[in-house]
Amino acid sequence: MLWYKAWRETRIVTLGGVAAMAIACGMIVWFEHAMRDNAEVPMSYVAYIWKSVYNSIGRDIFLFLCVILGGGGLLQERAQGTAGFTLSLPASRGQIVFWRAVMGYAGVVALALTPAVVLPLASPYRNEIYPVSQALGFSLLWAGCGAVFYGFTFLLAHVLEGEYTAILAAIPSLMFYGVLQGLPWMERLPMLNIFHVVNGEDMPYFNEGLHLLTGPLPWLPLGAMLVLASGFVFAAGRRMRLRDF
């Protein structure tokens, strides 16, 4: 039942996030004529979707919700005075952390898949087509990169006490990471730039002219991201094991 407890804790953000993402994608599709007609540079429907969903509003909502989903955990329960009840359950602390991480990441995956469902279904209502394969490809990229954002905040939430402290520390840390990408030696390793991997910008698998995923997806970096995120969760679990409540 630990998974159910974790689901109860994350469901508002998960379901609300999925709904918000679906509404955002739906509105982006619905207003495509008005936005494209007034754009400074004429663009195709596929380019408009990439710029609006995968390089702007949708991505921003997704990344921020990944961070929020990672913000819970035993330390936050301690602040609310419910940690004692959770720790008295007949389960190890490792199991509690594990199931919280799994259910939170399930929320990340649900968020990542939402555009892949909404965009291909909504586009025909505007007499447009958005390929399912493209939407699924971006969902995979989001799920892989989102794991790192989620895992990093998850670790912070198990290290830093105080409500919202993990979120307030995670966002600037990730922005600082973004600033580091401007350094010359980092530019030589483009796959280290998660902000570009997540939407394909400047990546060999993304055609900037067509705004389509054309090459094979970066399976190795995506796998490495999942391993890194698992490492964050493992570190959070170890931290909780030694913690005196």
Partner: peptide, 29 residues
């Protein structure tokens, strides 16, 4: 309005992003 703290933060952020997007709409720009 929202009892869940993280839910309130998520809702506030989503509304904020929606407001920014709406402000870019040609009719509201």
């Amino acid at each position: 309005v929202i009892p869940s703290e993280y839910g309130a933060l998520a809702l506030a952020y989503v509304i904020y992003i929606f407001a920014l997007a709406a402000a870019r709409h040609p009719r509201l720009a």
